[in-house]
């Protein structure tokens, strides 16, 4: 559990970060909380000759709750999300999800940016961000650009971020309606056996909008547009729940691991989604 030797950098601004990235390309990696990257380095599964610590860069630790959008800096920790009262009322699903990530010690270090950028299919924030139709802000040598969370993930640890880009913030359209983040895990600190993020809008007795994303059930998070669509226009009755879970099952592609075989994961994914929709609907 000793990483290979690496150079450690602690630049004071983003220009410094980008300069090192420009020089070393994919031999360099930025680090926020380090809770995804450092274990991989210690297992010698990630080879990072140049490690750039973002702690001193500044400007990425704010949570700004606007009228239509919420901007969360990449260095905001899960603990910050849990503690922020404005965020709690503007987007309560963020707190509900953050409380189910790892344990308090990890949440004091683990950041939103690291969680979404590392591309680990076990991470909870990517699916959540897809559910909320979040945009990610990336900065590189050629300036800033935005990428939809729903377009960001290509495969496990593979995203559309270029090697010389840094993810600096997530921009979340202020969510409306009912919400739920439901997660089954083996123990505290574990990744999900299955997790579902649901945001749902109710008008009278009818669902007018629903967004659904699943975590750790494929090599990327899965935004299931079809599952959400199956609820729209319904009263979220049993038939609608069955249609939504069937649509979701069509989109996921779990693999067997120590959490269980594929049949189990699919079954649990359906159960978890059903519970998440039911809870979100009750809050809508």
């Amino acid at each position: 559990m000793i990483p290979a030797a690496f150079e450690y950098y602690r630049p004071q601004d983003m220009a410094g970060v980008l300069a090192i990235l420009g020089e070393h390309g994919d031999d360099a990696r930025v680090m926020a909380g380090g809770h995804s990257l450092i274990p991989m380095m210690k297992l010698r599964m990630a080879d990072v000759p140049h490690l750039i610590d973002l702690q001193d860069v500044g400007g990425m630790s704010d949570i700004v709750v606007g009228a239509d959008e919420i901007r969360i800096g990449a260095m905001v920790t899960q603990a910050d999300i849990i503690d922020n009262t404005e965020l709690r009322s503007a987007a309560p699903i963020l707190r509900e999800a953050a409380l189910q990530i790892a344990d308090p010690q990890v949440r004091y270090m683990g950041t939103v940016g690291g969680n979404v950028a590392s591309g680990d299919p076990g991470n909870d924030m990517p699916g959540l961000m897809q559910c909320l139709n979040t945009r990610f802000t990336l900065i590189g040598a050629d300036g800033e650009r935005e990428v939809d969370a729903r377009e960001f993930y290509e495969a496990a640890y593979m995203t559309t971020r270029e090697d010389d880009e840094v993810l600096t913030a997530v921009i979340i359209p202020t969510p409306a309606g009912g919400y739920a983040y439901e997660k089954q895990k083996r123990k505290i600190g574990d990744y999900a056996t299955a997790a579902a993020a649901v945001q749902i809008i109710k008008d009278g007795d009818t669902c007018t909008s629903a967004a659904i994303a699943m975590t750790n059930l494929s090599d990327t998070p899965i935004y299931s547009e079809a599952a959400g669509a199956a609820l729209v226009g319904t009263s979220v009755d049993d038939a609608a729940l069955a249609a939504a879970t069937a649509a979701m099952l069509n989109d996921i592609d779990p693999s067997e691991d120590n959490r269980g075989p594929i049949a189990f994961k699919k079954h649990v994914a359906a159960v978890i989604l059903r519970r998440a929709i039911t809870r979100a609907w009750s809050r809508a």
């Binding site: 089954q184 083996r186 056996t193 959490r259 269980g260 075989p261 189990f264 079954h267 649990v268």
Partner: peptide, 8 residues
């Protein structure tokens, strides 16, 4: 008796 074996 972990989750998946109970489920099984």
């Amino acid at each position: 008796h972990d989750h998946w074996r109970i489920w099984k």
